[in-house]
Design a protein around this nucleic acid. Structure first.
Lengths: 125, 125
DNA sequence: AACGTATTAAACCAAATGGTTAAATACAAG
DNA sequence: CTTGTATTTAACCATTTGGTTTAATACGTT
């Protein structure tokens, strides 16, 4: 599986996102991580393995503890992927688009105005 | 399933991400979408259903065609979630952190410097 | 050596995923 | 009304996922 798919599917679970939220405030043992959840320890252990495979966490060894710490690096790639589409959801863009649509509709009879609008749509503000 | 999980798991598949990339350049029919893939039409149809459930696409009706268009809205939320962790992966931050670590190490004998360093670490540059 | 705590592994299960092929549906055009 | 094209549904299959319970392992303490 590619890194991006690994990252996204690791993030596609609320338990795992909560674990990352916890770990973003500092390293923790498996028991500490498991505490807030009404779920067996092995279940948490499996979630940690998923996060580890996606390289969103790394684990150390201290006596019988396996402290986990977050590694945000993979999120950079995920962010970059999503970023491509930012202008598609940004309000400014939507508003401009709506405005241009409106202009275009109103100018059904005024060809000159319609041409100007089409030109304006090409620009990415 | 919550919106965020729906979004991330929809994105956790390279075929679906490719479909979105295609649709970001304009609406398309199912056949057009399917063309680049060596996969049966029903398989694509299922992927589209996943994207639709995540509200990443919307479908119209035109005769026997069901044109799909991308709706980036859910990406806003996904972006916001990831954004929380931006400073954890940004290089500037890592460099500063490394620099402060270094300072701290060198000042093992100079208490005053160490105090300044700790204070500096609280700020988010 | 025996016990207690922290964690993982094994075996199992139900449900979801990602794919297939073959059949059904929806609509346009002869 | 039959045919052709676009798309979805149904039935099926293998694999993965997310959980369980019951061992097993690893290490510190007594």
């Amino acid at each position: 599986m590619d890194r991006l798919s690994l990252t996204f599917s690791a993030l596609a679970d609320p338990t795992r996102r909560a674990i990352l939220a916890r770990l973003s405030t500092g390293a923790a043992s498996v028991n500490e991580i498991a505490a807030p959840f009404s779920m067996s320890l092995p279940a948490i252990s499996k979630h940690l393995k998923v996060l580890e495979r996606a390289q969103l966490i790394a684990r150390g060894r201290e006596a019988q503890w396996r402290p986990c710490e977050m590694k945000a690096e993979p999120l950079r790639e995920a962010d970059a992927w999503i970023e491509q589409y930012r202008q598609m959801w940004e309000e400014r863009f939507d508003r401009l688009d709506a405005y241009l649509m409106e202009l275009q509709a109103k100018s059904a009879d005024a060809k000159a105005t319609s041409a100007k609008t089409a030109k304006a749509k090409k620009k990415k503000p």
